[in-house]
Write a protein that binds this DNA or RNA. Structure first.
Lengths: 236, 236
DNA sequence: AAAATTCAATTTGTATACAATAAAAAAATA
DNA sequence: TATTTTTTTATTGTATACAAATTGAATTTT
């Protein structure tokens, strides 16, 4: 009887994680205890414990007497993100190349397989979640409790950024994704070969690609039409 | 009336943090809900929320149906620690030099003043806590939410390692502390001058000093006495 | 006597009731 | 009518009661 509520609690936990990462719950969204409590057939006590834990991991923010909300994302955080990501992920991948166990490499290959499937047929959310799993496994491989907290925090926003700044209609962006997939393959190879240097470099390349994708979003290719009246001669 | 219990909750939170960092609660210690509940005049509900939050920040570990315990420390974690610390702290200090605000620099100088006082007259715990405050302020200066989680996790064990591997009787260790204090001064200077490169280098020096201190503990200077029967001539 | 099993005691987890705070709506004042 | 104040409603936080699980002792079995 209690086993069931324990399961529901875990489900809520995973559900909220997923919703945050896929932007089904956008940054800044307020969460209602009563509603979730009813939806997941959980009393408020365990529900609030889930909130606390998610807040600890960076998914939510708790405000005194004012409930939980999804962690915010601003242009400042975006800048902070690309400052920290190459470094932390570079370290994680180097350590992964050093410490990965065969069983973990198997799982990483499997995650990459899933990622490729999601690339073809899946939704944006599927893509983000399978990509996230890939990276989470590299974090597990690195096996350093002092780097993991920041790494996991980065992964949350990596997923969210991916969901925000991707338009499947854009050919450049589709191309970007297949490059990302190729990089995953190269990462697997570097880890399997215990090539720390290569893994570290791939991490940097991988994040630079993410940055490029955002630039494609922020600075789209110019329309191929003259703007008529707005076009004027350069002064002589 | 509720304001009071809110304060007790905060007190419990800070108290447990302090106990973990100063090793008054050693790694692996089990925490008893009932006892703490009575001691701090708090019901178990808010108490458990505190546990969750502390677990999220790395102070405690929660085990299903088996209560909370103080996060463990092993020789593996020590190795992980010195692998991650120079990198993360290097980044934090570089960013601190870049972003520190005058008000923060004032507080940092003040923290250093307190640290020096603790060095002279304070207990080991005072020393650890004032040193911790110094570093926490640098983290605040860096102002990057993606690096902070790992940084804070490192600071917990930095304090614990300091408490574990320091013997005030040892002249070398006392000397180490005054070097550490001088490094703090240099860090303040680098931050005030916005000298990122210097700040980054100082971070590495600072953590190398911590590592040296552990080596002094693990490999003490040989006793200055011949060991009698154990001394034997080298074979010709 | 050693190992396994059962039973009691302790401890952890969840639900519900109540208290306190914040938000919203209604009434009163300018 | 706009603004302030009061009242009502909704939401958050805490305490307590109960249910489930774990631990340890006592009993039984081999």
């Amino acid at each position: 009887m209690k086993d069931a509520s324990r399961r529901r609690k875990q489900e809520l936990f995973e559900h909220l994680k997923m919703c945050v990462m896929t932007q089904r719950l956008q940054p800044g969204t307020d969460l209602d205890e009563a509603t979730l409590s009813e939806e997941f057939k959980l009393s408020r006590t365990p529900l609030r414990e889930v909130f606390r834990q998610l807040a600890g991991e960076g998914y939510l923010e708790l405000r005194e007497n004012r409930g939980a909300r999804v962690s915010g994302m601003s242009y400042t955080t975006l800048r902070d993100f690309f400052l920290a990501a190459p470094m932390v992920y570079g370290a994680i991948l180097q350590l992964a190349a050093k410490n990965a166990k065969p069983e973990q490499i198997d799982r990483l290959k499997n995650a990459q397989k899933e990622f490729k499937i999601a690339l073809r047929s899946g939704s944006g959310a599927d893509r983000a979640m399978s990509n996230n799993l890939f990276h989470e496994i590299t974090g597990e491989m690195a096996d350093n409790i002092y780097l993991l907290p920041s790494f996991k925090r980065l992964l949350i926003d990596h997923a969210r950024i991916g969901m925000t700044f991707y338009r499947p209609q854009d050919a450049n962006m589709a191309e970007n994704l297949s490059v990302a997939s190729a990089q995953h393959d190269a990462i697997i190879a570097a880890i399997e070969a215990s090539n720390e240097a290569a893994a570290g470099q791939l991490a940097i390349d991988h994040w630079n690609l993410s940055r490029d994708q955002i630039e494609l979003f922020v600075t789209p290719a110019g329309l191929d039409l003259p703007l008529g009246s707005m076009a004027r001669k350069t002064p002589a």
